[in-house]
Amino acid sequence: MEKALFIIIAVIAVAAALNVLIQRNPLYSALSLIGTMAALSVLYVMLRAQFIAAVQIVVYAGAILVLFIFVIMLLNAPKQQLQIDKQKGLRYLAIPLAGLLLAEAFYVVWRVQDIAMPVVKEGEEAVGTTWSVGVALFTHYLLPFQVAGVLLLMALIGAVVLARREGDK
């Protein structure tokens, strides 16, 4: 049952991801990416990472892709295909890089063959719940958490600087 569900969801995720690349209209690509994100969220739930699954929807599907689609809507240039300067050199670089990525994927699959699901008995604090994420954030990961706060502040400032370039006061 769980395996069947996994296969269905995984196929959806991969198909949607491929569609992102195939589509020529950037809007369709972005919409397809939402499908990938939703499928990934289901996979997270199946891995017992409930909190991450919900955050996946809230942040990726609900905020990042909204930004993407906003940009596409604002630029409004789907008919005139965006002129991309074809850089021949990069094309040849892509082949070894793709090979490297594939090798890495195969290595991971080969090494990690059996993942033991965290078995939690009734009454215990489960892994992947909001509680465990919250506690981990302030114990093991306190420093990364604060760094993330600084990073977000930098991003805020960066966004303002970028958008204010031309002719503003």
């Binding site: 905020a63 909001t130 991003a155 958008a163």
Partner: peptide
Amino acid sequence: VKFYLVAILFLLFDVEVVFLLPWAVV
């Protein structure tokens, strides 16, 4: 471009709110 700014500010603050949730729960 204002709409773009709203969207990017929303994204950043949304991430901050997401960090608030697990803290509030525990």
